[in-house]
Design a protein around this nucleic acid. Structure first.
Lengths: 336, 336
DNA sequence: TGCGAAGATGTAATCGATTACATTCATTGT
DNA sequence: ACAATGAATGTAATCGATTACATCTTCGCA
């Protein structure tokens, strides 16, 4: 039970009969150490079970080998998949990752950033909670590099890693049109948010190829949450009970839309959803038709690699937006 | 862009015309400072935008105000809900929380613990990846208090916070029996895992009240993953296509079981699931009947509070298992 | 008036590592 | 044979805070 005070570099130096400087050199693989002393020191290290104290090291060298992720929520498979991708890469590179929760609030996001500054992270990866970015200077002012994920913010001087939303929406809607659909309603998000806007643009472009316009289609503007998917479906079906295809802009609204369908079996057989994002693992959806699958882990690993390049200074170029290709999956409906 | 070197306590001391000791006293709300100097120092702090350097502080005081969570996966709503509860409490108490991923592997769990030791966390909350606990001495040897969540491990000298699994299973199954069911199959987990074992015991006890025995029921032993829920359903229905009630021991197996049903509509109308854990947000399940809802956030907040008491020494009693009451929800099936 | 106690502040050691600079010693070239 | 070069190691300053101890006021009370 008693806390054993762990060995310091001094203890090792004494045990090995050398100075702390030499021990430090061995530890940091400095070339200027003779093979013999290296041996002696290494065995002393093992004998004492010595481990460097990263706090002391950080104080001196002012880098922490730590990076922070800020996510708007924890209970969201999308974000956690990205986080897992990030963590995998950074761990392999010897960094510790920690995840903070901004609870979908810009104010909390700001306060989490201040925490990152305090904790002196070497870099940050942020899934923005909103579409305002003035407070990002909290990080840039301290010279902490960061990468945005999932959304980018206009006029932001930082790298961003996102899915190619325009392309994903375009391909999915085009596929439905190729299959013969001509009326495809849409449940969209707020167009001020980059991802929602781009998905709308992709939809628009696909329609244009078939000489169709969004003006001829039923478009409902939701807020990306489950309730607005439900409500959107209600509005669209009340206006036109004959609707056959609906393009839903994200997973939560898709869930809400499916929920509406499950509770209103009178429409059941006719509807087909074209949806952005896969539904949660293993969920056998009835009306799923075409799905745009974002490369979640890849988004994470790309963001991590990009950040590492900034931290190490191997990339000093202009900020860049990485647009990753989504997959289009024509799912067999569960009731086929 | 240029990193502005931030003010240190020395700068503040100079600006205020006092010694660093005095500044430190002001910062730490030491009583022995006159109101006048406090004023002067505080205004200097504001003027310079000074913030303490937690790294330097930690080096000196050897506490980091940081606690680590180790979770077997990130992409799991159960774990993340608990994590959210933990983080909320600890943040309010001025602690920073970080989450590490053990990827369901004991070896990784061990290596994450070593990281916690290195990072000198003040405490840890662990959702065990397995049911072996020898490596927990990595933490106890350093005097780092920790709390287990969701599972406990036999013979472990640590607090644990879990759902009262026996009671939850008992009440849910009893409810089905009260409704007239007499044959209730079970898809169980491995009985070496505490939560699975307890759920089985609850099931057994409820049956006993009605003079029934598990020996008369179809019990399939899965591994808590989605595939084994699917497979369990297959086995049970092949053996007895007339099965009406199935008690499923966790969410993933429940998903698998539902998936099997969706793909085999010949059984569709007759099955009712009694399940532990709610399905993912907003999923309108067809065969859901009775659900045991674990108090996820409460598990997290309880674990956090318990850990704080250990860190602060306000609780030095014997390790204790906190069993939290689950809710029983008789869900209307989506197709009623 | 003088002395002790309490209050306010300063001085300097300390936490555990890194690293610039100094020192020692051996090797090499002329 | 001796200066110059360089390799191996040591000494001590440093990172930014905390805190034991010392010092100096000030106040109260005999």
């Amino acid at each position: 039970m008693g806390r054993v005070k762990s060995a310091t570099i001094k203890d090792v130096a004494q045990e090995a009969g050398v100075s702390t400087a030499t021990v430090s050199r061995v530890l940091n693989h400095d070339v200027k150490v003779s093979a013999a002393t290296r041996q002696v020191v290494e065995s002393a290290v093992v004998r004492l079970g010595y481990r460097v104290n990263p706090i002391a090291r950080s104080l001196r060298s002012s880098d922490t080998h730590t990076i922070g992720i800020i996510s708007p929520e924890f209970r969201n498979d999308f974000f956690m998949a990205v986080a897992e991708g990030i963590e995998g890469v950074l761990r392999d590179e010897g960094y510790t990752t920690f995840i903070l929760n901004s609870r979908e609030s810009i104010d909390e996001e700001r306060s989490r950033m201040e925490l990152l500054v305090q904790k002196q992270v070497d870099g940050a990866i942020i899934i923005p909670a909103g579409n305002r970015g003035d407070h990002y200077q909290i990080l840039s002012r301290e010279g902490i590099p960061y990468v945005l994920v999932d959304r980018y913010i206009e006029g932001m001087e930082a790298d961003a890693v996102i899915t190619d939303n325009i392309r994903g929406a375009f391909l999915a809607v085009q596929r439905a049109l190729d299959d013969g659909a001509r009326r495809i309603a849409m449940i969209s998000g707020d167009l001020n948010i980059s991802s929602a806007r781009e998905r709308f643009i992709g939809y628009e472009r696909a329609l244009k190829i078939y000489q169709l316009s969004t003006a001829d289609q039923a478009v409902y503007y939701g807020d990306l949450h489950i309730e607005s998917g439900y409500r959107g479906m209600e509005v669209i079906l009340k206006a036109d009970p004959e609707t056959t295809h609906v393009f839903v802009a994200n997973m939560f609204m898709h869930l809400g839309a499916q929920q509406f369908m499950a509770e209103h079996p009178q429409y059941a057989s006719s509807i087909r959803f074209i949806a952005f994002d896969q539904l949660p693992l293993g969920v056998p959806w009835i009306h799923e038709y075409i799905t745009v699958r974002q490369p979640l882990e890849l988004i994470g690993t790309t963001a991590a690699q990009c950040l590492l390049e900034r931290i190490r200074g191997t990339n000093t170029g202009e900020p860049r937006i990485y647009r990753l290709k989504p997959d289009i999956i024509a799912a067999k409906s569960s009731i086929d």
